Structure formats: structure tokens, C-alpha cells
Simulated assay, not measured.
Amino acid sequence: MLTLLRTLARGAAAQACEEAHDRHALLVLDQQIRETAADLERGRRTLAAAMAGDAAEARRLAEVEARAADLEIRAVAALAGGREDLARDAAEAIASLEAERDALRAARATFAAEVARLRAVLADAARRQAALERGRRVAAAAEAVRRLRPAASVGERANLRQAEATLARLQRVQAEAAATDEALAAIETPEESIAERLEREGFGPRTRSSSDDVLARLRRRAEADGSASA
């Protein structure tokens, strides 16, 4: 019985852990992506530092080779001048420099292979990191939609119906207001009578003076005033 209870307790704990992980999967993924991004950045910095060190070793190798070449020239000149003692000392120094040169060359060859391997590893890690970040954006969007689904199944439809009813009421009120405005405009602006329409078209005598009539009257008055003054 105790064994069964312990098994059930472990099963419940494991299930609770899985459910918690599922509920907070995005948070867990975000943290993991941050950690992998930090690891990738550290790897890049380490590789950059190693490459800078290799560049320094390359400069040191060039210096060693230059010193060995210079000593060899001087040793040959010493032998030609009969100074074998100086030439022997130079030969010992050249041998030491050549040993250092060979060690540097071997170290740089090994390092070059390691750098190539590290570059490949970092390039693969960078591609996988970019894929993780793209996948995270898609997962975040999907999770946001998933969280809306329970409320959208019933509540969203009700909200849509309410919004549609509100829009219909608003359109109805606006239509009624527009009709009222048109009726008021019609009341305030009297319709033109048939007699006025005929007069405006030039049929029958005029009941109102036009601007041309007024101007003609003013001219006649001006002419009459001029004749009287004369």
C-alpha cells in the first residue's frame, strides 16, 4: 500500500511538473534561448581572442625567421673573414632560432585546424540559434491565439453580435437624422412657383427687376441729369 501511495505521489508530482512546464513553455524557451545566445557570444569572443593570439604568433614567427636569416648572412661573412669562432656562435644562435621557428610553425598549423573546426561549430550554432529565435516568434504567436480560443468559442460570437447590433442602431439613427435635416431644409426653402419658373425662362412679363434693368434705369437717370444741367 505504501509503495502504491509513493508511486502515485511521484506520478502526480511528475504530471504537475509537466503541466507547469507546458504552461510556462514560452518562458522556459525564452530563458534557454538567452542562455544559448550567451554561450554563442562567449564562443565568438573566445575564437576572436584565439585568432588575435595566433596573429601575434605569426608576427613572432616572422621576427624569428628574419633574425635567423640575418644571422646566417653575418655568419657567412664571418667565415669569409676568417672568424670561425664568431661563425660558430652565430650557428648556435641560428640553430636555436630554427628550433623555435619549427615549433611555432607546428603550433600554428595545429591551431589553424582547430580554428577551422571552431568556425564550423560556431557557424552551425549561429544557424541553429537563428532558427530557434524564428521558431520562438512563431510559437509566441500561436500561443497567443491558443489562449484566445476558449473565450472566442462563445464570448467572441456574443461580442460580434453585440457589435453588429450597435452598428445597426448607429446607422439607423444617422439615417433618421439625415432624413430630418432634409425635411427641415425643404420647409425652410419654399418651392419655386410655376409662374416664377415661367418668368425665369422668359415667358410673360417680369415681376422683378434684373440687374440689367437696374443698370438701364441708372443710365437713363444719368442721361437725364446731364441734359438738365446743360
Rank of each mutant, 00 (worst) to 15 (best):
M1Y: 03
L2I: 06
L4R: 11
L4Y: 08
L4A: 13
L5C: 09
R10L: 14
G11K: 07
A12T: 08
C17I: 05
E18A: 15
E18R: 15
H21N: 12
H24C: 12
A25N: 07
A25G: 00
L27Y: 06
V28C: 11
L29K: 11
L29M: 14
D30Q: 15
Q31M: 11
E35K: 07
T36M: 09
A37V: 02
A37H: 09
D39L: 14
D39M: 11
D39K: 12
R45M: 08
A48N: 00
A49F: 01
A50C: 01
A52I: 01
A52D: 10
A55T: 04
A56V: 11
A56R: 14
R59N: 08
R60F: 03
L61P: 02
L61V: 02
L61C: 06
A62G: 09
V64N: 00
E65Y: 01
A66E: 13
A68N: 02
E72T: 10
A75K: 06
A75T: 05
A78I: 01
A78R: 11
A78N: 06
A78F: 12
A80Q: 14
A80R: 15
A80D: 14
G81F: 00
G82Y: 04
E84Y: 03
E84I: 03
D85T: 06
A87E: 02
A95I: 00
S96V: 00
S96W: 00
E98V: 00
E98D: 08
A99M: 04
L104F: 06
R108K: 05
A112N: 03
A113D: 13
E114N: 09
E114P: 00
L118S: 09
L118Q: 12
R119L: 05
V121F: 05
L122P: 02
L122D: 02
A125M: 03
A126N: 04
R127S: 07
R128Y: 01
A130T: 08
A130K: 05
L132H: 04
R134H: 10
R136F: 11
R137S: 12
V138G: 00
V138F: 09
A139P: 03
A139W: 08
L148H: 10
P150L: 05
A158F: 13
N159L: 15
Q162P: 00
E164G: 01
A165I: 04
T166M: 06
L167K: 10
R169E: 13
L170N: 06
Q171R: 14
V173A: 13
A175W: 03
A175N: 03
A175S: 12
A178H: 06
A179P: 00
A179I: 03
T180M: 10
D181K: 12
D181C: 06
E182V: 14
E182A: 15
E182G: 01
A183H: 07
A183E: 14
A183F: 05
A185S: 12
A185I: 04
A185K: 08
A186R: 15
A186F: 06
E188Y: 07
T189A: 13
P190D: 01
P190H: 02
E191A: 15
E192V: 15
L198V: 07
R200E: 13
F203A: 09
P205C: 08
R206V: 11
T207P: 00
R208N: 01
S209R: 15
S210Y: 05
S211D: 12
L215E: 12
A216H: 09
A216K: 13
R217V: 01
R220I: 07
E223V: 04
D225S: 10
D225Q: 11
A230M: 03
